[in-house]
Design a protein around this nucleic acid. Structure first.
Lengths: 229, 229
DNA sequence: CCCGTGATGTAACATCGCTATATGGCGAGT
DNA sequence: ACTCGCCATATAGCGATGTTACATCACGGG
């Protein structure tokens, strides 16, 4: 039982936090519920903020665990959809936790959160390799994340609003429709690249006023032409 | 000078709030800075929460005032874009205010916020009358709002993140592209060029084995990036 | 056996949000 | 003109909170 009391404190804090907000939970209540006194809590967590961050980090890890149980399937897009839905569902199921993690307070970026973003990034890289992404994975990650967090917080702000029914699905489909391009009929990414290069070349041919010097234009045309043959 | 002290309290609270968060501003500090004592503050605002809500309401009204100076133009879509941009800009310019308004605390729905949403709703009704909306205005309002708030909060969480450069425009365009249907007329060739360049850039980012030297790849990326902004 | 280090308890401090009570001032009514 | 009542403000203090200086305890290495 090396750090049993620490886990005990974390547990009762989580329990108290699931009922009310972070500001409404007092250190004294946590101590009394955990059967310890204040200095032990401060010995383990240093601060109330440290305690809350430890709870948030634990929440992240739990959420990440439920996320990783679902491995990648055949369709990266449905994986993305499932990830979005799990994120929103976790938020509306554990409002206090979610506000702790993504609310304005607790602005430390937990390691688990970075890990979750990396999972999202990996999914997007898979899509980009198939030419089904309309932007760089590095750009798409914060786009999806911002929209997802905003949706969850909005639904959390007043869950009984009838206008919020189906909100998550609408935002999700809107974002994914803009980020993910149609799967090409031909699944060969090289062909995909070829068609994209061809259309861009055609568009360029019709444009006169571009921010290109004649040399740049020639160079770009040559490079694009490598994939059109 | 009917309620001069009330405005004085609001003013100094706003000033103190612009430096630090809401929890770090004490009623005593506000009172000392305003030259009054605690009971007068509580007489006017009843509560610290009431004070903060009054400040937030005033912030909403100011934001709404800057919004209403720009009347509706000929193009409802550019009005929507301008509204989105002003929202995000207001958030990153006044972080403390924004967190007060849209953060987890202060969950009263201010009248001014409802008014702002009604303005958005009116814009969307104009679009729906032209058959350019892919969903009901009642459905589109929370979609746009959730994405916009999420984007602003994300940019606020760490403003120095380079991945957040251009995030607002990307989410904005993604949401509007999904919510607003094409005007029946032909597409703008410049926009066409931009999207084609973006798509090709994304495809290139996911490809490893290309007939490109590192220098050629860098050059091509630079050239294509000229149209993506 | 000692003793030093980490974990825990005792008791208190400073500050916080908030309020019971008192006081001043000023307009309304007769 | 005088009083009454009400609004705004001040005095002083209460309870609760986050936090900590100090003491105590257990226990493992020299």
């Amino acid at each position: 039982m090396a750090s049993s009391t620490r886990e005990q404190i974390l547990e009762v804090t989580t329990a108290l936090l699931s009922d009310v907000g972070a500001a409404a939970v007092s250190v004294r209540d946590v101590c009394q519920a955990a059967g310890v006194t204040a200095p032990t809590l401060y010995h383990h967590f240093g601060d109330k903020q440290g305690l809350l961050e430890a709870v948030a980090a634990q929440g992240f890890e739990r959420y990440l665990a439920t996320k990783q149980t679902h491995g990648p399937s055949a369709d990266p897009v449905s994986d993305l959809r499932a990830g979005w839905d799990r994120h929103v569902e976790f938020g509306v199921t554990h409002p206090a936790f979610y506000q702790l993690m993504y609310g304005p307070t607790g602005r430390r970026s937990h390691a688990a959160e970075q890990q979750g973003l990396q999972i999202l990034h990996a999914m997007l890289v898979r899509l980009a390799e198939q030419g089904r992404l309309s932007m760089t994975p590095d750009e798409a990650v914060p786009v999806i994340h911002a929209a997802c967090v905003g949706t969850t917080l909005t639904m959390l702000s007043n869950p009984d609003n009838p206008a919020h029914r189906g909100l998550s699905e609408r935002v999700r489909d809107a974002i994914f429709a803009a980020v993910i391009t149609h799967p090409s009929s031909d699944e060969d990414p090289a062909t995909n690249l070829s068609t994209q290069a061809s259309t861009l070349l055609a568009t360029l041919a019709g444009q006169r006023d571009l921010a290109l010097s004649p040399g740049e234009r020639l160079l770009l045309t040559e490079l694009l032409s490598r994939w059109t043959a």
